[in-house]
Design a protein around this nucleic acid. Structure first.
Ligand code: ZN
Ligand code: ZN
Lengths: 412, 412
DNA sequence: CAGGCATGCCTG
DNA sequence: CAGGCATGCCTG
């Protein structure tokens, strides 16, 4: 894994604490306990969003109503700042990333868990795409990840087992979210290069577009961007609705997504609540065919060394945002390469220390009791699996092992 | 040379005629003759710019005076549109390149030839830079090319053998120009990502900056961007003045330079004329050390197969812009790979047909008479050497052979 | 800072 | 469209 180029270090986020004094965080026992308590307060499986403040009035963007985003699990305020140590670099050679700083402190993190709900809301991508290098889009079931060219129509099917009578009271919201905790709070918007190309559409800043004429764009200044399409009756004899979406920036766009991995989140919503949710990873690139092959190939390689992480992708797991809890003086030691590391023991093996991919946190947890230890361990594993610093090529099936591998160190 | 990725096809310029019907140009005999006539009208060696309309009033940018750029050799109007077949792609996935279209039809091409003039104006880069991969800047004497990081100060010495008494009446203008004919008419400006980062400097759009406090920026809406610094008395005992310059975009910046090679042009000017000129290639990149090694290495390889093109870099050669002169119906055939081509015969070898690097032109010249043939051939060679489709890695010493290699085809 | 990946895009 | 370069930037 040495020498590879992960995602988004070229942002205004402070990459690894080398330019100033902020240091890796340490969890104290009581802080760890707080996290556990929060976790216990919202246990799996499906958690109905505790605060359903979703749009009770107007879902058509650009209105004046206040509009609340997807509610999030109510983690402590801190939880919304997983990376408080960011620093705005003034180095002008870096195109600044859309950090939406004005909103950062109030924005909530949209929920991303898969949740079909009572209408059994599911999303499907056609499997028939060829895997040529530059196929316009292709979906990896294995990775649960969409690979798509910028600005190419990508048909997506939405299925509901028990389609409600009143279609008009339902709509589908599409939204993109950065999938790593450090960037949850950044809104996904187009890069400066692709914006302001003059077309002055009202939704010019939106990465995700729906080709459907009835779609409308939500982007009140303090809100995440999303596209909303009123539900239509499905084609006769079917229970699904198909819509074409487009992505108007690449994952690599400098100053925009900036190589930061993203998720695509669809929610089925009605006037007063979210009734179903789907999410998957998206990569918007120039060669979906090449890249899916590469990522699946790497995933397979990782996969062959582990078998036990299946649970970590169960839909009933809730997303957790780990708050930063302390500062430690001293530079973080660089991760040593573990070249050609042999099969890593499953997560039940204790005494792994863990260091995140970007080198910001140094989690050094002292846990009293083996049960506690195992619980925390599972928590951390799941957290990292959902939001951790996983390499672009990782997939749900291989995350676990990979995660452990990446965190090997420093535990006595 | 197959598979390599040259410069700037991802522009709004139409790359190779595949999306619409414009076709490669053919020179007719009479058209060829016109070129020759033009060439003869402005014979080498040093040509004082025939129309010296340079700033007779105010060199401080942002004034209201009309300000004429560097004069150019007076080629036919057409000559200023070497690539009339451009098409603005509306495909939004391509960040539009600054084509300065409003100005394109009136802009003149700045002269770029080396011309010390009677004051023996020369420019020097320190040789002491280390060649580490990311050295902030380094100059290749061999390639006559500056490799420099974005936004790093690069000290440049200007030397005049007979420094005039009245410094205040002289100034040094720095300017960047695209070095390939297809892009002469584009002004070199910053990319959208690097512009509008809020600093709202009046010279925010300028790629080339001079750190000297007395510098001023010229960018009247219809003019090329340049930095002007009043000449100062040289340090006692010396005859040179040192100034620090910075480059605020990379050569690779999407929507900006966009991988198009550029030249850096300095002119010593006085109130009513240009009295000296220097130019070299510039590459603004992230790893000057790596890239200089790569380019010199490749140059050396090419160099080893030819010896006769030395003349083509003599300073007394004037730059020539070849106008597009006709359309031919039918798709251009793709160049066949000439893998591991053995040493190419020197340019005196006749019967080479030539096809340009970007596949736009098909020069198919029928020339009556061997002398004419040789003359044209030399002309073409020199032209290509100065402005032709040479690969990034080519250098003055290796252009010739490389050029011929790249044009091998289609001649019966 | 050197090695080397990531990823757009050029070539045939 | 596949091969493969070019080039920013991540890693140790
Ligand atoms: Zn973009
Ligand atoms: Zn730029």
């Amino acid at each position: 894994m040495d020498g590879q180029q992960p995602y988004y270090n070229q942002t205004n986020w402070h990459p690894n604490g080398q330019d100033n004094d902020e240091m890796p965080y340490l969890l104290t026992n009581s802080q760890t306990q707080r996290i556990i308590e929060n976790l216990v307060e919202s246990p799996p499986p499906f958690i109905e969003d505790p605060v359903l403040t979703v749009d009770t009035g107007n879902f058509m963007g650009h209105g004046t109503n206040t509009y609340n985003e997807f509610p999030s699990h109510q983690l402590p305020e801190q939880a919304y700042h997983p990376n408080n140590d960011y620093v705005i670099h003034e180095e002008q050679s870096h195109i600044p990333v859309n950090t939406n700083s004005s909103f950062m402190s109030v924005s909530q993190i949209p929920a991303m868990e898969l949740w079909p709900g009572h209408l059994n809301f599911t999303v499907e991508f056609s499997n028939t795409q060829d895997r040529t290098k530059a196929t316009p889009w292709i979906f990896s079931t294995k990775l649960k990840k969409l690979f798509v060219c910028m600005d190419k129509a990508c048909p997506i099917s939405f299925r509901m087992d028990n389609l409600p009578q009143e279609y008009t009271k339902y709509w589908i919201r599409g939204q993109m979210v950065f999938s790593k905790a450090d960037h949850f709070h950044d809104h996904v918007e187009r890069c400066p290069g692709h914006m302001g190309m003059g077309s002055s559409l009202s939704y010019e800043t939106h990465v995700l577009r729906c080709e459907d004429k009835t779609s409308s764009y939500v982007d009140h200044s303090d809100k995440r961007h999303s596209v909303v399409v009123p539900l239509k009756p499905p084609a006769p004899g079917t229970q699904s609705v198909s819509l074409c979406y487009k992505f108007m920036c690449r994952s690599s766009c400098p100053g925009g997504l900036n190589r930061r991995p993203t998720k695509l989140v669809f929610t089925l919503e009605t006037l007063d609540q979210v009734v179903g949710r789907y999410s998957c990873d998206v990569r918007i690139c120039s060669c979906p065919g090449r890249d899916i092959r590469a990522e699946e190939g790497k995933a397979e390689k990782n996969h062959s060394t582990e078998q036990t992480s299946k649970e970590s992708e169960a839909p009933e797991l809730i997303p957790i945002v780990l708050p930063p809890i302390g500062l430690q003086k001293g530079k973080m030691k660089k991760r040593k390469a573990t070249p050609a590391a042999p099969p890593i023991p499953p997560p039940t093996e204790p005494s792994e220390d863990q260091e995140d991919d970007e080198g910001i946190y140094n989690l050094n947890i002292n846990i009293p009791g083996r049960r506690n230890y195992l619980f925390i361990k599972d928590f951390v594993t799941r957290f990292l699996n959902d939001y951790g610093s996983l390499p672009v090529d990782s997939n749900k099936h291989s995350h676990h092992n990979d995660t452990l591998k990446r965190f090997k160190k420093e535990q006595p």
